[in-house]
Write a protein that binds this DNA or RNA. Structure first.
Length: 577
DNA sequence: GCCGTTTTCGGCCCGACTGTTTTCAGTCG
């Protein structure tokens, strides 16, 4: 069972507890624990090492429930609540505009316990007269039902970010906006986002907001006030805009970047110092003085914290680290000197070798590797003969663009852990990426052994997209700690694949790998010249994992990379004799 | 239910917008 699945169960408990009238801080504890879990290392590993209660917000009681969920798939407490309140209540609560109070009233007064019940009641007009449900609220409920049905739950980062950039350009282009940027889960590089938060500064907020809600993209305007507005765009994705004066830009950006848990912890720390933190500034409760910050750095400095990059704001220990000066500086895109994973028309890419070399050179890289698929991938995989022909082409083009092109391959890891090329072919390559593409539903033990054997191969330098996750597949089952430890021990880098449909490793898992001493390769997995920029998503996940430049293979010089490869081929000291 | 630089009890983050209200409850982020 994944962390996300366990977190979902905890959130179900939380919601049903509130529905049942339990005290606020009791059910909120479950919500905070769930959010912590979503960004924590795999629960199975935490339970094995007895580290679960070390996570913030997880004490004895909730840890016990988590253990129970892992062991049995559910919790007796959850089952008990579910007996009283049917699971279809979550549908009603999922309708925008219907909150806890309304849902409780509808349930107790009219027996409405599902979306179908709600629709029927709306149709029959039987909701007229329910407290605080006037004609406008009823219209909102109707719209909420339609949105609930048509809505996709979450939007992948790779789709949301371009949309956010488009909206930002629209705002900048037609309104008196000063600074405009995206915040929220997008800025934290969450793998998928529930909405898009945009923050903006202006002294004419009303004009910016009027322009925003007039966008052709807006299929509905959900709210329109003097400093904030919300719209829905196609597919039911919500976009929130907040506009404040330029002198609180730092407070504004900090506030709306979140995460919620990070902000709660930050404000709790502030309260202990008699300070109240909000998007409007930092209010000193003793003196009544409000300090405004133009930058986020000022916000953190005002609380005696070192700057915490957005991707690290997850409420998983970063505030403590920032307070005691141990927060690492995460790797930055500008520190990358190359990219080991890209394809050409020789396999399933759409651009030629020459075009990919030119594109990599244009990014200012010192080196890059061409890593087309190996023969096992069927019609588009390269045979040894075709691979050697490609090497000849690379040598012929070498040096023309002022970038070193390395000969590589994304070699299939076969079901038994052996590689799709034999050693004589692998030995000719400068660097080897090895990936699983077949038999992805092997047993946990088989997949673990398969990946460890790949790590132990002296020619394998990078394990490509290590978990195999995608938008539609949760990834292969294997023992993360065992494989990550093998990678660290053998000098094999783990890839963080930035292709938006992969994002693999995710930050939470990569952080575990970092704790186990792994080296990482941050790659684009580009299948077109324009996709080399996807490496920025890999950097985003790396930063969420607290990975530093020193942990990153492609942040090293070409000599450093060659030394990494040579060391593994040579084997551990003494192994030759 | 969790937690501790006022530590084992007594606290627990902050604010905007809407619609239904005659001063605020509910929802949302």
């Amino acid at each position: 069972m994944t962390n996300a699945e366990i977190a979902r169960k905890l959130k179900e408990i939380r919601t049903l507890m509130e529905f049942a009238g339990e005290p606020f801080y009791k059910f909120m504890a479950y919500e905070r624990a769930a959010e912590t879990l979503e960004n924590a290392p795999p629960v199975a590993q935490l339970l094995a090492s007895d580290e679960l209660t070390k996570l913030p917000g997880i004490g004895k009681t909730i840890a016990g429930r988590i253990q129970e969920i892992v062991d049995t798939g559910t919790s007796a407490y959850l089952e008990e609540l579910s007996q009283k309140y049917p699971p279809t209540l979550f549908e009603v609560l999922g309708v925008s505009g219907i909150g806890m109070k309304t849902a409780q009233a509808l349930f107790h007064q009219q027996g409405i316990a599902s979306l179908a019940d709600l629709e029927a009641a709306v149709e029959a007009g039987s909701l007229v007269g329910v407290a605080r449900l006037g004609p406008k609220s009823l219209e909102n409920v109707k719209r909420g039902i339609l949105a609930y049905k048509g809505r996709q739950r979450r939007t992948p980062l790779g789709r949301a970010l371009p949309l956010a950039r488009e909206i930002i350009a629209y705002i900048q282009g037609g309104s008196p906006a000063q600074s405009v940027t995206y915040a929220g889960s997008l800025r934290r590089q969450e793998p998928s986002v529930g909405d898009i938060d945009i923050v903006c500064t202006s002294h004419q907020a009303d004009r910016v907001i009027a322009h925003f809600v007039a966008s052709e993209r807006a299929e509905a305007v959900l709210a329109e006030g003097s400093t904030k507005a919300s719209i829905w765009v196609a597919g039911g994705l919500q976009i929130d805009l907040r506009v404040l004066p330029e002198d609180v830009y730092g407070n504004l950006l900090q506030h709306f970047t979140g995460s919620r848990e990070h902000n709660i912890q930050l404000r709790e720390l502030a309260v202990r110092r008699d300070l109240r933190v909000s998007e409007n500034g930092i209010l000193n409760l003793a003196t009544g003085e409000n300090a405004t910050c133009r930058t986020e750095e000022e916000v953190y400095a005002a609380l005696d914290l070192s700057y915490i990059p957005p991707e690290m704001r997850l409420g998983v220990g970063e505030i403590e680290a920032a307070a005691n000066g141990t927060l690492p500086v995460p790797v930055a895109l500008s520190e990358l000197r190359g990219d080991f994973h890209m394809h050409t028309t020789a396999s399933d890419g759409v651009d030629t070798l020459e075009a990919m070399i030119a594109a990599a050179a244009a990014r200012g890289y010192e080196y890059h590797a061409i890593s087309d698929h190996s023969q096992g991938r069927g019609s588009f995989g390269l045979t040894p003969v075709r691979l050697r022909e490609q090497h000849a082409e690379i040598r012929a083009l070498s040096g023309r663009q002022g970038i070193k092109t390395l000969c590589s391959s994304e070699v299939d890891i076969r079901p038994d852990g052996s590689l799709d090329f034999d050693e004589s072919v692998l030995a000719e390559l400068d660097v080897v990426v090895a990936s699983v593409h077949s038999a992805t539903r092997q047993s946990r033990d088989e997949m673990t052994a398969r990946l460890i054997r790949a790590c132990e191969n002296p020619y394998v330098n990078v394990i490509g997209h290590p978990t195999g996750r995608s938008e539609s597949f949760h990834g292969y089952e294997f023992d993360f700690d065992a494989v990550f430890s093998a990678a660290a021990r053998t000098g094999t880098a783990l890839e963080i694949d930035g292709h938006p449909s992969h994002l693999d490793l995710l930050g939470s898992l990569a952080r575990r790998a970092k704790q186990l001493g792994c080296t990482f390769s941050l790659d684009s997995d580009a299948h077109a010249a324009g996709q080399l920029e996807h490496v920025s998503y890999a950097v985003g996940q790396a930063r969420r994992a607290w990975i530093e430049a020193a942990d990153v293979l492609n942040a090293r010089s070409l000599e450093g990379v060659r030394a990494f490869v040579a060391a593994k081929r040579r084997g551990p000291p003494g192994a030759q004799n």
